[in-house]
Design a protein around this nucleic acid. Sequence first.
DNA 1: ATTGAGATTGACT
DNA 2: GTCAATCTCAATA
Length: 194
Amino acid sequence: MNRYFFKQDAVTLAKDLLGKMLVRKVEGRIINSLITETEAYVGPEDKGSHAYNNKRTKRTETMFKEGGHAYIYLIYGMYNCLNIVCSEKDKPEAVLIRAVEPLNEIEYIRMNRKIKSNKVEDLTNGPGKLCQALDIDTSLDGIDLLNNSVLYIQDNLSNHEIVASKRINIDYAGEYANKLWRFYIKGNKFISKK
DNA sequence: ATTGAGATTGACT
DNA sequence: GTCAATCTCAATA
């Protein structure tokens, strides 16, 4: 992918990222997965966003980077979430990756996840789950997806229908809690919630 | 210095 | 359906 792709607005990019390949290299392995579910956080006016009102903190500073960087943060003290920063520098927009469909290295992923369920979709159908599965944590926060070899996005041909729905777990966001800014691939098993 | 809550998850009743 | 786990950081004092 090129820089222009990531400089789109968050809602457009959230839809365009569906079906794209997320590549993670770790411990000599190359793990390929398809992005199946995303959420858009659109900017300073979005009460659901960490950067609401242009709030700049040590954590949110990454959201103000130019499109194409990774914004990774720790939530609830135990899970990491992966976002793709988009738009221009100093415009805090990002797309949260909520679910992926792993294509290889399933046993490595299963080992990382340490869960009882043997349903393959339980391995990566949630933002915290996929970070644990792919060994993604805050040490990768702020990296440029266009200029490193351990985490990046590859173009991929995909025929799919997109479903739009309300974002998850942002009840505090007032009228922004009802925006249809969550997108997923219709019919895919790797979805966090129906 | 202390407190509170979070873009979640898995285990449990 | 309920709920605790666990930690960073912002808001308050």
